[in-house]
Simulated scan of single mutants.
Amino acid sequence: MSGSRAAAKARTHENLLDAAATVFAERGYGAASVEEIARTAGVSVGSVYAHFTSKEKLFVALMERRSAREFATAQAELVGGFEAAVPALDRQLLAEADSAHLAELGAEAWLHALRSPAFGAELAAHHRRVHDVVTAMVAQERERRGTTLSMSDSEVGTVATALARGLVQYRRLSPETVPDDLFGRTLTALLRGLEAPPPPPASPPASDRAVPGSVDA
């Protein structure tokens, strides 16, 4: 494939994702159709299927793009340590919780995943990829601190991801129960609380211990 053709294909791919974001936001996942997404993007239905073999895969690709952008921002902030990244993490959570279409679309997709095994498998695979990225970020921060945690990196990644999803739901329904900085403060407390205490100093070998009542030569 020539460079110009590859660039045109990449542009169409992004245009389709932009169109899908608009249609899914307006219609919801269930009511959104591939035909409307194609019309919004100004392409044929066949073009949609050439890039994404199903509506499920198109939706997951849209989620992947958003996650990739969020993780890129968080990763850049993590260069300065976890504390420096906390404000960005809080902003990302609030952006989803305070956006009606993002929060509702996420909830609708979760319900559809429970009813559709095929879509459930696609969404589960996406969540595993998100979990792997979060776990790697936990490991990076743990190594930067030079400490060990009383839970595995994977377990901390699971808890952090579940915490974010739960806070989005609570914030959407009862904003007053989720302060703007609650996610970051909770993650900070979690990491500090999981830090294992340093091991006690090793006892000297028995041969090096002074014998009570003895006098050194």
Rank of each mutant, 00 (worst) to 15 (best):
G3T: 08
G3D: 12
S4W: 10
A10S: 07
T12H: 10
N15F: 00
L17N: 00
D18V: 09
A19K: 08
F24Q: 04
E26D: 08
Y29F: 14
A32P: 00
S33Q: 11
E35F: 08
E36S: 04
A38D: 05
T40W: 05
G46A: 07
E56W: 00
K57H: 13
F59Q: 03
A61G: 05
E64K: 14
E64Q: 14
A68F: 02
E70Y: 08
D90Y: 03
R91D: 11
E96P: 01
H101T: 06
A107V: 09
H112G: 03
L114I: 04
A121C: 07
E122D: 10
H126I: 09
H131Q: 15
T135H: 06
A139Y: 00
E141D: 08
R142E: 01
E143F: 05
L149Y: 13
L149K: 02
S154P: 03
V159L: 15
T161L: 15
L163V: 06
G166M: 11
G166L: 12
R172Y: 13
R172E: 03
T177K: 15
T177Q: 11
D180E: 13
L182D: 02
R185N: 06
R185W: 04
L190W: 06
L190V: 03
L191K: 01
R192T: 04
L194I: 01
A196S: 12
A196F: 02
P197C: 10
P198L: 14
P199Q: 09
A202W: 02
S203G: 00
P204L: 15
D208E: 12
R209L: 09
V211H: 08
D216L: 15
A217W: 03
